[in-house]
Amino acid sequence: MDQGRIRHMAVFTLKSPQDSAETKQFLADGKQILSSIPVVQHFEVLTQVSSKCEFDFGFSMEFENQEAYDTYNAHPDHQAFVEKRWKKEVERFQEIDFKAY
């Protein structure tokens, strides 16, 4: 990863069962809504494979720099997704943000 870039990851467990239609819709909607924000790069929807982690899924994305990351956080589509979907459908989560060392 280039200097200055930020990799943002949100790992989470949903309130709905892992293989339910509600879960599939949440993951699809998250990908569609969040990846369409212009500053988002390399968006991925991930599923957990390790028994050492308590979370089931992850969203991973990269930003060119801090300004792009701040733009994403303030973007109305991101804020609406958090308010209308994330806060209602996510059981627990952890956010992780990395820069190259």
Rank of each mutant, 00 (worst) to 15 (best):
D19E: 13
K99S: 00
H78K: 04
R85N: 02
T71S: 05
G30M: 09
D29W: 08
K84D: 02
A80H: 03
M61F: 02
F63E: 07
S60N: 06
D56M: 08
S50F: 06
K84P: 01
Q48F: 05
V90R: 01
G58T: 05
V82F: 01
Q66H: 04
F63H: 08
W86S: 00
K15P: 15
Q25I: 11
D2Q: 13
A74K: 08
T71H: 03
K99E: 01
S36Y: 08
F98V: 05
A28T: 15
R92K: 07
F63M: 07
A80K: 08
G58Y: 04
E89G: 04
I6R: 14
E64F: 03
G30C: 13
I96A: 00
I33V: 15
V49R: 09
K87W: 01
K24N: 15
C53W: 03
K15L: 12
S50N: 08
Q79V: 03
D29P: 11
P76R: 02
D77E: 03
V82S: 01
F57Q: 06
W86Y: 02
L27K: 12
T23E: 14
E22S: 15
H8N: 06
D77N: 05
Q48C: 11
V40L: 04
D29Y: 08
L46P: 08
E22I: 11
Q25M: 13
I37Y: 07
V40Q: 02
A80E: 07
L34Y: 09
P17M: 11
K15M: 11
E89T: 07
K88I: 08
S16L: 06
F26E: 12
D77I: 06
G58H: 06
T23H: 13
Y101G: 05
V90G: 02
S16A: 15
R92Y: 00
S36E: 13
